[in-house]
């Protein structure tokens, strides 16, 4: 996590690159869908059949699972666990850390072999690492994309919505 950054700005170009990478991963593995998560639980991008689940909630929970595994690693005096695999009857979840701040998630069923997911997820994480480095650099360099008129409108919306 970069403490100096208050917002992470993902431009259209980088979003397209990330989505292309996730789409290729889904196509090549035959997985149901794939997501890129921020460690704080936010979904940066998702590709595939994402309509089947509430991916916002999934993002929060999977980030929680990873946070918990990090603490387990700490107790075991491991640096961290880079990969988590959750096996269900119908669906499986493969999660791999990208750098220190991101997570790649692949949802797949019995038609897809875990070995293939592992190999191709590794390739995808390498690719995503360099894209995400660019995102971080750009976020640092860029002035705020949020204008003061946006802030005022947001404040009005907050007043309107958050009331008894």
């Amino acid at each position: 996590m970069d403490p100096q950054l208050t917002s992470l700005i993902v431009s259209e170009r980088e979003t397209r690159l990330i989505e292309d990478c996730l789409e290729r991963l889904v196509d090549d593995t035959g997985a149901n869908y794939s997501m890129l998560l921020d460690k704080s639980g936010q979904v940066v991008a998702a590709q595939g059949d994402t309509a089947r689940q509430d991916i916002t909630a999934l993002g929060a929970l999977l980030a929680g699972t990873f946070a918990s595994s990090r603490e387990v690693a700490r107790l075991l005096k491991e640096k961290d666990f880079r990969v988590l695999f959750q096996q269900g009857i119908k669906e499986n979840i493969f999660t791999e850390l990208i750098g220190e701040q991101w997570m790649l998630v692949v949802m797949f069923d019995k038609r897809t072999h875990i070995g293939l997911v592992k190999v191709l997820a590794k390739r995808a994480t390498d690719e995503l690492t360099s894209i995400l480095d660019t995102v971080r650099q750009q976020s640092r360099a860029k002035d705020a994309v949020i204008s003061s008129s946006f802030r005022t409108s947001m404040e009005d919306t907050i007043d309107l919505l958050f009331k008894d």
Binding site: L5, T6, L8, I9, V10, E12, T15, D38, S40, Q42
Partner: peptide, 15 residues
């Protein structure tokens, strides 16, 4: 750290 996705026009903040 808030996430601003320019392509999807989304802003996500965590409280």
């Amino acid at each position: 750290m808030a996430l601003i996705n320019v392509a999807a026009k989304e802003i996500h903040c965590k409280i």
